[in-house]
């Protein structure tokens, strides 16, 4: 069995998972960021600068 026949399937699968994985992380991250922004707005009101406190 040649080298590519041995690893080819795994390499293609892992490349697919790399794409899915990074896309998945950024999608989840985007949702969490949106949640954080909404939470901050809902709970804290207007943004304040710490130096003003």
């Amino acid at each position: 069995m040649g080298y590519w026949e041995m690893v080819g399937g795994n390499v293609i699968q892992s490349l697919k998972y790399m794409l899915f994985g990074m896309a998945g992380i950024f999608v989840i991250t985007a949702i969490i960021i949106a949640g954080m922004v909404l939470l901050n707005k809902a709970m804290a009101g207007k943004p304040k600068n710490t130096s003003e406190e």
Binding site: V11, L15, Y17, M18, G21, I25, F26, I28, T29, M36
Partner: peptide, 19 residues
């Protein structure tokens, strides 16, 4: 909250190493 993006980007090594 946008700092969250850097946490996401810094997982690239996992998937690169997977390949």
């Amino acid at each position: 909250p946008k700092l969250m993006l850097f946490g996401a980007a810094a997982q690239f090594g996992i998937f690169f190493t997977f390949t």
